[in-house]
Amino acid sequence: MHPAYSVILFTTASGAGYGLMALLGVFAAAGLLPATTALGLAGIGLAAGLIVVGLMSSTFHLGRPERAWRALTQWRSSWLAREGVLAIVTFAPVALFALGWVFYNTTAGLYGWMGAAAAALSVITVSCTAMIYASLKTIRQWNNALVLPGYLSLGLATGSLLLVALTLIFGVFTQTYAILALVLLAAAFLVKFAYWRSIDREQPRSTIASATGLGAFGSVRLLEQPHTEANFIMREMGYSVARKHAKKLRAVSMLALFAIPAVLMAFIAAHIVSGVAATFCAILAVLSAGVGVAVERWLFFAEAEHISMLYYGKPA
């Protein structure tokens, strides 16, 4: 599948944003984060900013962005519509949560509940994003039980790195946050590792024989494609630039997304670094994971093989 940069930016930025929002909601509601204006403004502002940047960029790949509101109407059948509706609904508790934290310096009572609601809705919204892909029967690499856990764990892991950086900057860091980030990184790593193993081992579900129905007559090979030039289907579904570099790119994403941030988090958690050095390490971890998750998402698209390409003599 062709990886649209706007969709990569959208899913990674909003994933991290929702991950951070969920963690802020839970920790603030539990009274573990001080309800200071600066921390609330920076934390919720960063999370909401990433979400808004993501949502905005997702409209860039539309043919008619001015009609984007229509994408909210079919929530009964479409995961894309559900994602849109939930993304907007989530802003309501986020706004009230922010109101309490930033203006009234409280995250208790109603505002705490709003934090919890924002956390729950964030998780559900990311789940809808994942289900857009996981529900497509046409792409076996997406129609996989590990896609949903992958999106959730990566959203929370990247969000937790942001939380560590944020709490260090505002001097409210405790070891718990770094340990949490380590646990979430490990979980995301295991999910991704299992996912790659799963798609590598799975046999294709359809073949050119079943696609053409001609398998009974012997082996089937494409002799002539319909036109001399590539068409929309071939450009959209037949992307294969990254596929041939998949192994290297997987290694890059493992290193940047999991290994480097995990080592840095371990340094912070074990108090090997502290003060400004710890903050620097946390920001470095965020940047590294940002690169890693972008590569991971690019691969998620580039490694996806669409069965319509069977008609064009390509594997699926």
Partner: peptide, 22 residues
Amino acid sequence: NKCIGCKLCSWACPYGAREYDE
């Protein structure tokens, strides 16, 4: 008149029957 050109339907079609008019 309602289509926003998100192309998701083309992803969902196994037969490659839907095309985008750029």
